[in-house]
């Protein structure tokens, strides 16, 4: 029955993991963070990732067909993947049974990271975090 930090520490065991955070995309607050922070500033990284997540979550074009047109617990987007020359960022939206707007942000070194594995594991962790 993991709490936030246990969940983030588990994410850090993924190969190539450099940093992990649980971020609220409405406020931009990091509710938890472990490891390094992209850009070196945890609060700035959380606010910037939140802005990206919010844009993805709020655009109609990215919503699944027959998806969450009305308010519900399902986030409209499952995950976001961003790559650059040396790293991957995976943003996994967390589904909760109460109203929330949070996502897991995993930062992976590109050379060691396994994107497919990270996506699967993050999905599992997101489920365990809130459903026990």
């Amino acid at each position: 029955m993991p709490g936030i930090d246990e969940c983030l520490l588990e994410a850090m065991r993924l190969p190539g993991a450099r940093g992990a955070a649980l971020v609220d995309w409405t406020s931009g607050l990091a509710l938890g963070a472990v490891g390094e922070s992209p850009g070196g500033d945890q609060e700035a990284a959380a606010a910037e990732a939140a802005e990206l997540a919010r844009l993805a979550a709020e655009q109609h074009a990215f919503t699944a067909d027959g998806g969450t047109e009305e308010e519900g617990a399902d986030p409209p987007v499952e995950d976001l993947i961003l790559s650059n020359r040396d790293s991957y960022h995976v943003l996994r939206f967390v589904r909760t049974s109460f109203d929330s707007s949070v996502f897991l942000h995993l930062w992976l070194a590109r050379t060691e990271g396994n994107l497919a594995l990270a996506r699967i594991r993050l999905g599992e962790m997101a489920g365990r975090l809130v459903l026990g």
Binding site: M1, G3, I4, D24, T96, F98, R128, L129, V130, G132
Partner: peptide, 24 residues
């Protein structure tokens, strides 16, 4: 109030999330 729509006992992670959210 934040946990209202939740049925049953929330998981520790969910509770911590809600508590931190409510605190801030």
């Amino acid at each position: 109030t934040l946990l209202t729509p939740h049925g049953g006992d929330p998981a520790p992670g969910a509770l911590e999330l809600c508590h931190l959210t409510a605190l801030y």
